[in-house]
Design a protein around this nucleic acid. Structure first.
Length: 258
DNA sequence: ATGGTCGCCGAGCGA
């Protein structure tokens, strides 16, 4: 089974690229972030006719998450207990949708950006991650993948120019500690062994030709529980998907299970 | 330190 995650930065504007990506890599399950669409807009995009069921949460604003699956999709859950937006598919703060696909629990996550250090949104980000961690501790004994845009670069190796980010979000000790807490709980970054750094990124800003100069960040991750991680046979970042006109600012990340 | 580019909609705002 092949699972992927991708911050598409608008599903409607990217739908042709999404379809091409699903076919190119024969993807079974795709977690999407920043879909920027309302749930009622999803059926118009033709994903069902390609054989994918869709679990969706979000609005047409700046977030929105989805799980596409062609290997079955069950037990859909919007958000997690204790989180704003829990249970409401049209809630812009949902930021998480979980579904069981082919026996694996896949959570598509769009971790809050944080905006600026010490901004209320920064503290909300840390709180949100703390609540996710509590929920995720309950899922550790089952095949579970926490996938998506974490908006955290866990190490300096994951930042094209750490000096430039010295006063920015995504790299602060508190954010990195929040990420590390999932690893401490037994979740594993299953992609890094197959795509080691340095200078291996998943996101490049649109301006200043950041992609062409490979000045990016690694902020999109697949964290697997032990029962998930032990089934991983390979992984890669589809860096080429970021190239050319009409690309998202994030590249997809792909993981293979036995 | 600022500005650069996208996508939401049809002005700014968020990333």
């Amino acid at each position: 089974m092949r699972i992927a995650t991708w911050n598409v930065n608008s599903l409607r504007s990217r739908i042709a690229r999404v379809e091409a990506f699903l076919e190119r890599h024969d993807v079974d399950v795709l977690a999407l972030q920043e879909t920027k669409a309302r749930e009622e807009q999803v059926p118009m995009m033709g994903l069902e006719s390609m054989g994918y069921e869709v679990a969706y949460a979000g609005t047409n604003q700046w977030n929105g998450v989805a799980v596409l699956s062609r290997v079955g999709l069950a037990d859909v859950e919007v958000g997690f207990p204790g989180q704003p937006g829990w249970g409401d598919p049209a809630e812009s703060e949902a930021r998480a949708v979980g579904a069981t696909c082919g026996g694996v629990r896949v959570w598509s996550l769009y971790v809050p950006n944080g905006r600026k250090v010490d901004d209320p949104h920064y503290h909300y980000k840390l709180d949100w991650l703390g609540r996710l961690r509590e929920a995720a501790q309950e899922w550790r004994t089952t095949p579970t993948a926490l996938v998506g845009d974490w908006n955290i670069a866990p190490t300096d190796e994951d930042v094209f120019d750490p000096k430039q980010f010295a006063t920015s979000t995504h790299v602060t000790p508190r954010e990195r500690a929040a990420f590390q807490a999932f690893l401490d709980d037994g979740y594993v970054d299953v992609v890094r062994p197959h795509a080691p750094g340095p200078e291996v990124y998943t996101y490049w800003d649109y301006y200043r030709q950041r992609y062409e100069r490979n000045r990016g960040l690694r902020i999109d991750f697949v964290l697997g529980s032990a029962p998930f991680a032990e089934r991983v046979t390979g992984a890669f970042i589809d860096r080429e998907e970021r190239a050319g006109q009409g690309a998202s600012d994030h590249a997809p990340v792909v993981v293979d299970l036995d």
